[in-house]
Measured scan of single mutants.
Amino acid sequence: NRRVIAMPSVRKYAREKGVDIRLVQGTGKNGRVLKEDIDAWLAG
């Protein structure tokens, strides 16, 4: 149960899109989840 590193704005964006942020692979520094990662996850 790893802790997800993401800015609050990215967490909010994921919530609005209905994405469980824990399932998204972060590509930022130290595995940080970026807004682009959410978009990529939604695109498949």
Score class of each variant (00 low, 15 high):
1 N>T: 15
1 N>W: 01
2 R>P: 13
2 R>Q: 12
2 R>T: 13
2 R>E: 12
2 R>G: 11
3 R>S: 11
3 R>K: 15
3 R>A: 10
3 R>C: 07
4 V>W: 03
4 V>A: 08
4 V>P: 09
6 A>T: 06
6 A>W: 02
6 A>Q: 04
6 A>P: 04
6 A>M: 04
7 M>P: 12
8 P>T: 09
8 P>F: 04
8 P>L: 09
8 P>R: 14
8 P>G: 10
9 S>T: 10
9 S>M: 08
9 S>N: 12
9 S>R: 10
9 S>V: 09
10 V>L: 04
10 V>F: 01
10 V>A: 06
11 R>P: 04
11 R>M: 08
12 K>S: 08
12 K>Q: 13
12 K>W: 09
13 Y>F: 04
14 A>N: 00
14 A>I: 01
14 A>E: 00
15 R>Q: 13
15 R>K: 15
15 R>Y: 14
15 R>T: 12
15 R>D: 10
16 E>N: 10
16 E>Y: 10
16 E>V: 11
16 E>C: 08
16 E>D: 14
16 E>R: 12
16 E>G: 09
16 E>I: 12
17 K>H: 14
18 G>Y: 06
18 G>N: 11
19 V>R: 00
19 V>E: 01
19 V>F: 02
19 V>M: 04
20 D>Y: 05
20 D>V: 05
20 D>T: 04
20 D>S: 06
20 D>L: 06
21 I>F: 04
21 I>Y: 04
21 I>L: 09
22 R>C: 09
22 R>K: 10
22 R>V: 07
23 L>H: 11
23 L>A: 10
23 L>V: 12
23 L>P: 02
24 V>L: 08
24 V>T: 03
24 V>G: 01
24 V>I: 13
24 V>D: 00
25 Q>D: 11
25 Q>L: 13
26 G>Q: 03
26 G>C: 03
26 G>K: 02
27 T>Y: 03
27 T>I: 02
28 G>W: 01
28 G>K: 02
28 G>A: 05
29 K>Y: 11
29 K>M: 11
29 K>D: 10
29 K>A: 12
29 K>P: 12
29 K>I: 13
29 K>G: 08
29 K>Q: 13
29 K>V: 12
29 K>N: 10
30 N>C: 09
30 N>H: 12
30 N>I: 05
30 N>Y: 13
30 N>W: 12
30 N>D: 15
30 N>F: 13
31 G>D: 06
31 G>K: 07
31 G>A: 07
31 G>N: 09
31 G>F: 06
31 G>V: 02
32 R>L: 09
32 R>N: 08
32 R>G: 08
32 R>K: 10
32 R>D: 07
32 R>Y: 09
33 V>R: 02
33 V>T: 05
33 V>G: 00
34 L>P: 00
34 L>R: 11
34 L>Y: 08
34 L>F: 08
35 K>Y: 08
35 K>A: 08
35 K>V: 10
35 K>P: 06
35 K>H: 09
35 K>S: 07
35 K>I: 11
36 E>H: 13
36 E>Y: 09
37 D>R: 00
37 D>K: 00
37 D>S: 02
37 D>I: 00
37 D>F: 00
38 I>M: 01
38 I>C: 02
38 I>E: 00
38 I>H: 00
39 D>A: 04
39 D>Q: 05
39 D>G: 03
40 A>Q: 13
41 W>G: 02
41 W>M: 07
41 W>K: 04
42 L>I: 15
42 L>Q: 06
42 L>G: 04
42 L>K: 06
42 L>F: 08
43 A>T: 13
43 A>Q: 12
43 A>Y: 11
44 G>S: 15
44 G>L: 14
44 G>T: 15
